[in-house]
């Protein structure tokens, strides 16, 4: 157990890690935005009165929840270009895989949130003469989003962690840069320790805030 840790060999390459962080953040933000918005639409679709809409949203959710993200990313990267004549970059493949997967999960979160609002709220809003859309936008969504904030934040953290999977198709993000540094300097132990620490430093404060929000919401409800 007398291993001599040498972190200098990692920090000498801080520039490469910084590029990785930027790549990770870029992927994260895009996937977060697409994932949450598609999730909201699909979540609403699952409660639609039109059967085909309901059926399609359910199929979407079930399919993307019941297959591994990594398989989805590889499918979009290697298989999709065969079907449609577009070039799929590693970035695009990762966006498609992670966003759609997250959309399926957040759809369930939004659906649960909307379902948790008492029917009396709908009835009161409809009794005032609001349309379905007004009801949803002014009365139901504001209340349900408050309730699902902790779950959505959790989802956000999961998306951030999932971004590492993009390294499998060689998208330049933190882990991919780590692999590179490790292969050049033969210091995988230090590299992966530092990368784990970077994720911890970025994500742990968010996790703590989520706990606090959860507690506050639990008290106010």
């Amino acid at each position: 157990m007398s291993y001599h840790w040498n972190f200098a060999s990692v920090f000498d390459n801080w520039w490469a890690l910084a590029i990785g962080v930027v790549g990770t953040l870029k992927l994260f933000v895009v996937c977060l935005v697409i994932g949450m918005s598609v999730g909201l639409i699909v979540g609403l679709g699952r409660r639609s009165s039109r059967r085909p809409v309901r059926w399609l949203s359910t199929a979407f959710v079930e399919f993307f929840r019941n297959t591994p993200v990594l398989v989805q990313i590889l499918w979009f990267y290697y298989a999709l270009p065969i079907l449609v004549p577009i070039e799929v970059s590693p970035f695009l493949a990762a966006i498609l895989g992670i966003s759609l997967n997250s959309a399926a999960y957040s759809a369930e979160i939004f659906r649960g949130g909307i379902q948790s609002i008492e029917p009396g709220q709908w009835e009161a809003a409809r009794a005032l003469g609001m349309t379905w859309l007004q009801c949803m936008r002014r009365i139901i969504l504001p209340q349900s989003i408050r309730r699902v904030i902790p779950s959505l934040t959790n989802r956000g953290v999961e998306i951030f962690k999932m971004s590492t999977l993009a390294s499998v198709v060689a998208y330049v993000e933190l882990l991919q840069q780590g692999k590179l540094i490790a292969s050049l300097n033969f210091n995988p132990l230090e590299v992966y320790t530092v990368i784990a620490a970077i994720f911890l430093i970025i994500l742990y404060p968010i996790v703590r805030v989520t706990y606090a929000v959860e507690r506050r919401l639990a008290r106010s409800d």
């Binding site: 157990m1 291993y3 953290v157 962690k161 999932m162 971004s163 590492t164 999977l165 390294s167 882990l175 780590g178 692999k179 490790a182 995988p188 132990l189 992966y192 320790t193 990368i195 784990a196 994720f199 911890l200 994500l203 742990y204 996790v207």
Partner: peptide
């Protein structure tokens, strides 16, 4: 609990596969 919940599993896997044997 917190470390293994907040770091990506792929990073953990690389750490255990490439890093741990060194220690």
């Amino acid at each position: 609990i917190e470390v293994f919940r907040t770091t990506p599993p792929l990073v953990q896997l690389f750490w255990f596969y490439f890093g741990l044997p060194i220690i």
